[in-house]
């Protein structure tokens, strides 16, 4: 047999990934669904918290604002393993939140990813909203908008940036492993997600299967991005249609 180094595993991994997808392997399906559910929930909750927080910081002027921006920027780079360890100690039966009985549950994984995703979503939102042309912000006020209307108008203007915030949040959630390994426990069929399964398979030397799951993970992230980007571009598609139908020469 000709030894091709690492390419061998990657090649077989690709083949195995297709095999697993098309055979509808129940274990792989379950792992994939757990990943999607956990990271999807964390992303949505992260958006529900991160977007209002990021937008408020971008639009309001208050004393500790600069400090808060630094805090968010720092939290954007939180090491997942540290978050995992901290939450493990919190959620552990002997920990202060042990009574919640959340350790080694998908909910604990959502919580861990939420802690990681919310600052990222907030940070990207903050920069997207800050980047809205100051003249447009002033124009909204000039048109008579009250503070709430002004926020809505500006968020609408920053909507592509907000979508990016959600996409980036999801990307970091679905690819995260350190935190969910610790608080989820990688329990088979319950808290085993794609990334933690990949770590386990790698430790066991099952490189081909690990690569196969890696390819599924990549494919998933890609599919979600395509979906969100499609949503992002839909307004533009509508615009081209409108242009051909609606264009009247100026007289």
């Amino acid at each position: 047999m000709i030894y091709l180094g690492g390419w061998e595993e990657i090649g077989f991994g690709l083949f195995r990934a297709l095999q697993l997808i098309f055979s509808g392997d129940p274990e792989v399906l379950r792992i994939t669904l757990i990943s999607l559910r956990v990271s999807g929930t964390a992303t949505l909750l992260g958006a529900a918290i991160g977007i209002p927080v990021g937008a408020s910081i971008a639009l309001r002027r208050f004393p500790a604002r600069t400090l808060l921006i630094s805090v968010i920027n720092t939290l954007m780079g939180l090491p997942p393993v540290v978050v995992g360890l901290f939450l493990y100690l919190m959620l552990s039966n002997f920990g202060p939140m042990g009574f919640l009985r959340l350790l080694y549950t998908p909910e604990a994984m959502v919580l861990a990813q939420l802690v990681l995703v919310a600052p990222i979503t907030a940070g990207v939102t903050l920069s997207a909203v800050s980047n809205v042309d100051a003249r447009l912000k002033e124009m909204a006020v000039s048109l008579g908008a009250d503070p709430l209307q002004e926020v809505r108008i500006i968020l609408r203007e920053a909507r592509l940036g907000l979508l990016t915030a959600v996409i980036v949040g999801f990307g970091s959630a679905i690819s995260e492993v350190g935190a969910i390994m610790m608080v989820g426990g990688n329990l088979l069929g319950y808290t085993r997600a794609l990334t933690t399964a990949i770590v386990l398979l790698t430790n066991q030397g099952a490189f081909t299967e690990a690569i196969a799951l890696g390819i599924i993970l990549l494919g998933l992230a890609f599919a979600i991005n395509i979906l969100l980007t499609y949503l992002q571009l839909r307004t533009k598609a509508g615009l081209f249609a409108a242009e051909t139908e609606r264009h009247h020469p100026v007289t």
Binding site: R37, V38, G40, T41, L44, L45, A47, A48, T105, P106, E107, V110
Partner: peptide
């Protein structure tokens, strides 16, 4: 939609359990 979807996911999770 965000809140509803989050709720649905959360329910789905506990339902799964």
């Amino acid at each position: 939609v965000i809140v509803a979807a989050a709720a649905a996911f959360a329910l789905g999770l506990s339902g799964m359990a």
